[in-house]
């Protein structure tokens, strides 16, 4: 079984987790045009590099962030959402 290193529960079987999509900034609810919402909703990163993703540990109801390589399936880093970097040093996922 593939193992996911959960920041809260430690290493667990990947079947305990649910993938929750790419981490992207939410468009402004007040001012973003429809096109920005379409972009946010339907156009996700689909490249061959490292993506920053939401993951959910079902038994403990815990959301966290994983950086995962989209070809090798290697999980490079996992952390609590409070540690999400606010600067521009993003993995491939957010720039494409």
């Amino acid at each position: 079984m593939k193992i996911m290193p959960c920041p809260l529960n430690g290493p667990r079987n990947i079947s305990e987790f649910v993938y929750g999509g790419e981490v992207t900034p939410l468009p402004s609810v007040e001012s973003a045009p429809d096109k920005a919402w379409a972009e946010h909703t339907f156009y996700a990163y689909n490249g061959t590099g490292v993506a920053r993703e939401w993951w959910y540990h079902t038994p403990s109801g815990y959301w966290f962030v994983a950086e995962r390589h989209r070809v090798s399936d290697e999980i490079l880093r996992t952390y609590d959402p409070s540690e999400l970097p606010s600067d521009e040093s993003t993995p491939d996922g957010e720039t494409c």
Binding site: M1, K2, Y19, E53
Partner: peptide, 17 residues
């Protein structure tokens, strides 16, 4: 599969399920 990947490996978890 339950999450995106550019890889055509087979996995035990999918087979079990």
């Amino acid at each position: 599969d339950p999450y995106p990947l550019y890889n055509t490996r087979s996995s035990l978890e999918l087979k079990e399920q």
